[in-house]
Amino acid sequence: MVEPANYQPLSGEIPSNVNVQEYFLQGSILDANADKLKQRLQGLCDNVPPEPFTDHEQIYFLKNATSMLPIIVKACKSLAKPSTPWQIKYVGATEVGEHNKPTMIRSCVTVAVSNDPAQFLDNLGFSLQSEVILKGYFYRKGRLQITVSKISVPPTATCDTSKLEASASSHLVEVNTTASPRDETAGDEVKNFCQLLRPAIVLNKVDHRKLQQWQ
């Protein structure tokens, strides 16, 4: 069995080479062209059929006295496979870096948890900020993982996935890998893969801070 790109073995001790740095590039493609991109991705990913996924993501903020930026944690649950465990993901600040850095970098710690972590996160002081549903396809190539997904807002508390309202007429495309912070080659790997997707889609570094200023 091929392990997923972000596989972290379960053992008594945290592995010393734990992958806590996420190297990623993002972009978007219009719905009309998404199918072409999917075909291209399937070809690049050794013709393995993509895995459909529907994930419910809740984004929690924790106010931090020492910094203006809140601590962000995402609680994710697969709606397509209800038997898979919940995950809580710490997502650090995104570093765009200098021109010589091939990708954006953020620290990322994923923990699988037994049940709904809402009360636990509440006890930690987190408050729910927003929630989205990501529905799309997941590809993998070596340790890279590629998602092509549609973002929508959950309709009601029941999360009836058949009645999702898409919030835009395009798909979000993300290529990422988690590796150790010392791994110099991971960023180049992501960048090189993204080059192969041109000209269907151009994935570039996006300065999230500038995006927030425009809002």
Binding site: N64, I88, V111
Partner: peptide, 15 residues
């Protein structure tokens, strides 16, 4: 949770 919990908590050390 799985073993990553202590790494997760160390990320919250500001609080």
């Amino acid at each position: 949770t799985d073993v990553m919990l202590s790494a997760f908590l160390s990320k919250l050390r500001a609080v």
